[in-house]
Amino acid sequence: MSEEKHIPVHNLTYQEFQLTTLENGHPENFNDVHRHNFFEILWFKEVKDDSHLELDFENYHLKSNHICIIAPGQVFNMKLRGEKGYVFAISREIFQEICDVELILTNGAAPFFPDYESRKNCQGIIKLLEDEYHRNCRMNLIKAYLKAFCIIITEDLTSQEPLLHDKQRIQKLITLIDTYYITQKETRFYAEKLSISAHHLNDIVRISRGTTVKKMIAQRLLLEAKRELSFGALTVKEVAFRLGFNDSSYFSRFFKKHSGYSPEQFKNMND
């Protein structure tokens, strides 16, 4: 039985791009745990004191002017309580044209604050987007506006990275981990792919992200394990084998070390 039978997958059915608002009848049903097969940008212009969303099992308290980017495959849940803001639903193909930040293409972006100048510029772009979307809907022009919007908001996300070359290596590392994390769990493999030493790669990761390559791989494994255990029909042993663990007891120790719960406890919590 596939896990899609347990996690509803929301699709972009007849358009490559949809622009709607949170307050004016957004077509997607937010009120369930679900995944997308597209990218979604949420700009929460006004929220309630207790507004929050859940993204890949992490709970985020929302504040006004938070922006969140949800990538395909991420597990998302939010109950709307009268929040106001914008929702962009963007096909994978268009998003890959307008955004070149691997970190976001792979993992989306948890709620973050653009600075005041960025918000002001983005508001002007959205006005242009709304006019074009509801009148002529010329996709080349819409893509240009979306690209401008993404450049502005992603600059805020990447401005803290130390060096451009190291930033590019980190983005490439994230993509490599997402591709190989089940079969390749050693730092040396990723260092060789990036043509640097394992020691140098760990230095870059430690300085720019405050962690290690091993921990990044472990967090990616843990996330997939949580997805499978929460919504899939697989047993703990089946999840262990699917994620490349030959010994289910070792998988259980790994899961508890990184989450604080045994796989069985976590599975029961989400039944």
Rank of each mutant, 00 (worst) to 15 (best):
residue 44 F to W: 15
residue 58 E to Y: 02
residue 53 L to E: 06
residue 72 P to T: 10
residue 62 L to H: 01
residue 42 L to C: 06
residue 61 H to T: 10
residue 58 E to H: 12
residue 48 K to H: 12
residue 61 H to D: 13
residue 69 I to W: 11
residue 50 D to I: 09
residue 42 L to D: 05
residue 60 Y to L: 06
residue 42 L to R: 12
residue 60 Y to P: 01
residue 47 V to Y: 02
residue 41 I to V: 14
residue 71 A to V: 09
residue 50 D to C: 08
residue 49 D to I: 10
residue 58 E to R: 08
residue 71 A to N: 06
residue 40 E to N: 11
residue 57 F to H: 13
residue 41 I to M: 11
residue 72 P to S: 08
residue 48 K to Q: 14
residue 71 A to K: 11
residue 55 L to N: 08
residue 41 I to A: 09
residue 63 K to E: 07
residue 68 C to H: 02
residue 55 L to G: 08
residue 51 S to A: 13
residue 52 H to M: 13
residue 62 L to I: 09
residue 56 D to L: 08
residue 54 E to S: 05
residue 50 D to W: 07
residue 48 K to I: 01
residue 51 S to I: 00
residue 53 L to Y: 00
residue 45 K to S: 11
residue 64 S to R: 04
residue 65 N to S: 14
residue 49 D to C: 02
residue 73 G to F: 08
residue 64 S to F: 10
residue 50 D to Y: 10
residue 63 K to Q: 10
residue 50 D to L: 11
residue 68 C to V: 04
residue 44 F to E: 07
residue 67 I to R: 00
residue 69 I to T: 14
residue 60 Y to V: 02
residue 43 W to R: 12
residue 53 L to K: 04
residue 41 I to E: 10
residue 65 N to L: 05
residue 75 V to Y: 03
residue 75 V to Q: 01
residue 47 V to S: 05
residue 49 D to R: 11
residue 61 H to K: 14
residue 57 F to Y: 13
residue 71 A to T: 08
residue 41 I to Y: 03
residue 64 S to P: 03
residue 60 Y to M: 10
residue 50 D to F: 09
residue 55 L to T: 09
residue 58 E to A: 10
residue 59 N to K: 14
residue 44 F to H: 15
residue 63 K to I: 10
residue 67 I to Y: 04
residue 58 E to Q: 11
residue 45 K to C: 12
residue 46 E to L: 14
residue 40 E to D: 07
residue 57 F to K: 12
residue 67 I to L: 15
residue 62 L to S: 00
residue 60 Y to T: 04
residue 73 G to V: 03
residue 57 F to M: 07
residue 66 H to E: 05
residue 74 Q to F: 07
residue 54 E to Y: 06
residue 65 N to Y: 13
residue 40 E to K: 14
residue 51 S to V: 04
residue 59 N to A: 07
residue 56 D to V: 07
residue 48 K to E: 06
residue 70 I to D: 00
residue 65 N to Q: 12
residue 60 Y to C: 06
residue 73 G to Q: 01
residue 60 Y to N: 04
residue 64 S to V: 07
residue 63 K to L: 03
residue 72 P to I: 09
residue 69 I to M: 13
residue 73 G to L: 07
residue 73 G to D: 00
residue 40 E to G: 05
residue 55 L to W: 05
residue 49 D to H: 09
residue 50 D to A: 12
residue 45 K to Y: 15
residue 48 K to G: 03
residue 74 Q to M: 15
residue 60 Y to D: 03
residue 71 A to M: 12
residue 54 E to T: 10
residue 55 L to P: 09
residue 52 H to V: 07
residue 53 L to H: 00
residue 63 K to A: 08
residue 70 I to P: 00
residue 54 E to L: 04
residue 68 C to E: 11
residue 66 H to Y: 14
residue 54 E to F: 13
residue 41 I to F: 14
residue 62 L to P: 02
residue 55 L to F: 12
residue 59 N to M: 09
residue 72 P to F: 13
residue 43 W to N: 05
residue 54 E to N: 11
residue 75 V to L: 06
residue 73 G to H: 06
residue 70 I to K: 01
residue 45 K to P: 04
residue 71 A to I: 11
residue 74 Q to I: 09
residue 49 D to Q: 11
residue 40 E to Y: 09
residue 52 H to Q: 15
residue 46 E to Q: 14
residue 41 I to Q: 01
residue 40 E to V: 13
residue 47 V to I: 03
residue 70 I to W: 04
residue 70 I to T: 04
residue 74 Q to K: 09
residue 73 G to C: 02
residue 51 S to W: 01
residue 62 L to Q: 01
residue 51 S to M: 05
residue 62 L to G: 05
residue 67 I to N: 05
